[in-house]
Write a protein that binds this DNA or RNA. Structure first.
Lengths: 190, 190
DNA sequence: AATATAAGTGAATATTTATTCACTTAAACA
DNA sequence: TGTTTAAGTGAATAAATATTCACTTATATT
């Protein structure tokens, strides 16, 4: 018997991300995914139950990926600013290098494909960052306000900077990356 | 002859915004828009050429609205921090009060409905804010870095804060609003 | 009040898109 | 090398959705 070409799943994901980035969730069809992934439409149904399954599975892969990357090399006993800088940097780099995944996730959150309980479960995966912010408040490194706003502020500045950098094809130098962290830090610090 | 019920256009827009906020651009159908707007599907075609036209026209209405609100009461000769605060506040409030419009615009930017030249033209409408940031750098009120990043930072922090506030149904008090501006300002100031 | 004209309707039709399936191809194993 | 089995194909079919149109309704004009 012929074995499964497990690489096909990756091809489908890659194609889907590319298409969603270019035309949004509203713009993808099974035909276009199959074509982009260089296989027949029927083949999609060997590896995935249906269209929803492609999106649902890819969604979880992307969530998993980012949650993993965010906390890479994270040392909780490092000095506060350093610890926050590492996570900030991890998030920033991940968003830059996998911009298509960010776009896809954002679109999923406003789509009929991902249900409410799933969204809530996903938010929980990023709790460690929430805890780090709590610690910052306790150590009086950060402004004394609900962590909720501090976290939103931090994520917002990262997301938008990446989004605009990609759309306008702006190169961001290491120096400029540091300046961006400084804006974020100055905004959050006590 | 029977005159046009010009209110119908507003009903259609309202219905579309509501549906896109709830289920994303990928989730709307002419049937669902008609039902939500309480009219027959055929009626949609009296007021709009087709589905694309609904989205395209609504897109321009939303862009127009926000560009107008952003600079309401703006006095260019006011002290710098005050001027920036006003615009920051206008944007924040507009996003809060018309969150559905923000979601719709964001989705349009990643969809096959809005073409590239249109996107570029829209960005231009927000040039006055870009100019205010330039002024801030000249007056050495703001950090000395490409305005591009300062603007992205400012918009990002607003967008994400609003997004999360709405999703998590967080009430934001006037005091907390000021704290949020302070984060933004501390991040941007020299 | 009668007429004309365009709005409004929603079932019928056209179009697009998802999914299936009869068939072909390729690898594993005897 | 032949047989078996599942992958792979893409045209055919089903399902969902956009659009039209023959008809009804409302109102402005005479």
């Amino acid at each position: 018997m012929k074995p499964r070409d497990e690489n096909k799943i990756a091809q489908v994901y890659k194609a889907t991300l590319k298409l969603v980035k270019a035309r949004g969730l509203a713009g993808i069809t099974m035909q276009s995914v199959a074509k982009e992934a260089e296989m027949a439409t029927g083949t999609l149904y060997i590896y995935f139950k249906n269209k929803d399954a492609i999106i649902f599975n890819l969604f979880h892969v992307c969530v998993q990926n980012s949650a993993q990357v965010f906390f890479r090399n994270y040392n909780p006993s490092a000095p506060y600013k350093e610890a926050l800088h590492l996570i900030w940097y991890n998030i920033m780099r991940h968003r830059m290098e996998h911009f298509d995944e960010s776009v896809f996730l954002e679109q999923c959150f406003h789509s009929p494909f991902i249900d409410e309980p799933t969204k809530v479960r996903v938010k929980k995966m990023f709790d460690p960052l929430r805890e780090l912010i709590e610690r910052g408040k306790q150590e009086q490194e950060l402004k004394d306000m609900d962590s909720f706003w501090l976290l939103s502020f931090m994520m917002g500045s990262i997301n938008e900077v990446v989004k605009r950098a990609v759309y306008f094809n702006k190169k961001i130098s290491d120096e400029m990356l540091e300046m961006n962290f400084m804006m974020c830090w100055d905004g959050m610090k006590a």
